[in-house]
Design a protein around this nucleic acid. Structure first.
Lengths: 341, 341
DNA sequence: CTGTTAGCGCCTTCAA
DNA sequence: TTGAAGGCGCTAACAG
């Protein structure tokens, strides 16, 4: 496990370390022949650049840190994949970490990444405290927040890219209205998350504008899980209700609602339309086929990576940009047009 | 973005860099007071150790590289999460990368990780070429293969931890036999993958021992996807067949088969039992409830990380160990006992 | 085109 | 208990 260094190669080739360095970096000012000779030697000797040393002296790592709440969650996993792919195309490696604001480990994670001298950090989080965290750290390293942006906070001095949840909520209301629904429910209001707050507000406001009646059912849990959706849906279904459609705060919540409906013999979409949000993988499954809104993880990833790298390469920490993506409706089979029944 | 170094702190505290270094590393030979004073200064000045520099001089990074075929796939995502969690407990950070043997980028990835001087590499792969790759690289860095081990190759000089696919195949046969099935099909034979090869062989051998008749249907595609499962199942269902149970090469294949069965009005498990392998998240969904075998990603991750770190800390590259985990049956609702009908 | 000289930020003997 | 000096492997002026 003894490693051959640039110095060894230099000695063997009878040149200086500088020359070897130049050969390795395709510097223009070098003789083609000696270059070839050196490269050949490197290959033969199994030389591998010590990137730590290179980064130390060049103070650039070409690595970006990516912090996600839960790599194993379907949306985040997709995000991770796209981020990595796209970053690689632009010449950056990704250092992927698990963590979320408030879990007590996240500061340690940021310190680690900064200690590793990553060129920038991408944080994906829907929690409110993510912004505070970034405001605190972005003086130390370029930083972009993914997915937690909110119109309301446009005053925040941070860089961010996000699905426009407010608009998403509005689109949902509009879609259901267009299908002829006039009394609907919003399932899973959760105030701890800005994302969900906005989604809810957008939905209610558009519904109000259209004259559609909406009942909101709150989620007492701290996460929008299938189990929570199941319980909330039961709460709704177990007494008589007159609504014809349900907009679930997330696909997982929708899944729970589906299960509850199934057990109580409520047919979807015949008796009740169900609309989700996220477009997780499950949603596309044959037996599910949930109509929902895509968070467009690929677009989010691309946009976030691009912004971060612009930041890194401009070296300008005085400008803050916020980008908003419009969610995309994915029509499958859980919403029915009841306008002319 | 100008960083404060150990030298700055030393100057400010009126001591030498050595002293600061000692304070930072809780060296025993240092005055408690000066230690406190220095630490306080570091905090106030926002000092963060440059890990690159530390690693360069100590030649230890406390980072392990993890290479997975597809972070967004459910099994790999779970694996990634567990690996990271467990490594963190043992004081190691994880550098997560996407790549698989044969995709043309993997050598670059390994070179990158070695260049970053990771202390070790964990590779998860089911492909045959993974072993060749590791044999080639393990002289440069400690290495553990996850999930692709095969009994047949116990002669290989590599470190590995894996679900015992051969035994898994045997267990599957035994389970179906116990339920009274006598004519079964193995759906999705794929020779490119050692994993699948073993699973198939185990299944056939145990079936033969029990006197159970098995028809194998091959998968012409290079991956075990839902789409492939769908096509293969159609191939089976479209002509008359007498088998009472199907063992699918993977849960995804099983999912495809479910869809095909659904469309053709074949009831599962009433008319046909279906057994999967992997226990991906989907499998547990209310409308799916697939009976399957768990790959036990948590156990796999723990075991792999532990082995790798032992390797790293022993510094012994002459010993190779192989660990085998037994899959665990997860009984849900897609297999029926037909023994006394 | 090539070599010399200084670092990058930290750790680690060896003296004091 | 502290400091000075050298080195980890590489890059980056600046001369030649």
């Amino acid at each position: 496990m003894q490693r051959v260094t640039i110095k060894d190669i230099a000695r063997m080739a009878g040149v200086s370390v500088t020359t070897v360095s130049r050969a390795l970096n395709n510097a223009p000012e070098i003789n083609g022949e000696t270059r070839e000779r050196i490269m050949e030697l490197c290959r033969k000797e199994g030389y591998r650049t010590n990137l730590l040393a290179r980064s130390l002296s060049s103070s650039r790592t070409h690595v970006i840190g990516v912090v996600l709440p839960d790599i194993s969650g379907p949306i985040h996993a997709a995000l991770a994949l796209h981020i990595e792919t796209y970053a690689a195309q632009l010449g950056y490696q990704v250092m992927l970490c698990n963590g979320q604001p408030g879990d007590g480990r996240i500061e340690g994670l940021f310190d680690f990444l900064i200690g590793q001298r990553v060129d920038g950090i991408l944080l994906s989080s829907a929690s409110n405290s993510a912004m505070d965290l970034l405001e605190q750290y972005q003086s130390a390293v370029p930083t972009v927040l993914l997915g937690a942006f909110a119109r309301a906070s446009s005053s925040r001095r941070i860089n961010s890219v996000s699905i426009d949840n407010y608009v998403g909520g509005r689109m949902a209301a509009q879609y259901l209205y267009g299908l002829g629904h006039r009394k609907v429910v919003y399932l899973g209001v959760r105030e701890g998350s800005r994302t969900h707050h906005l989604r809810h507000r957008g939905f209610r406001e558009m519904a109000a504008e259209l004259g559609m009646e909406v009942e909101s059912i709150g989620n007492r849990e701290s996460h929008s899980t299938t189990a929570a959706g199941y319980r909330m849906a039961q709460e709704l279904f177990l007494k008589p209700f007159s609504q014809t459609a349900v907009f679930a705060a997330s696909d997982l919540v929708a899944l729970g609602a589906m299960q509850a409906a199934d057990e109580l013999g409520i047919a979807i979409p015949e008796q009740l339309s169900l609309l989700g949000f996220d477009d997780i993988d499950y949603a596309a499954l044959p037996k599910i086929r949930l109509t929902t809104f895509s968070q467009r993880p690929d677009a989010l990833a691309r946009s976030g990576v691009r912004l971060l790298i612009e930041l890194i390469e401009s070296g300008d920490g005085t400008e803050f940009t916020q980008r908003l993506l419009t969610p995309a409706l994915v029509e499958r089979s859980t919403c029915r047009d009841i306008s002319n029944r």
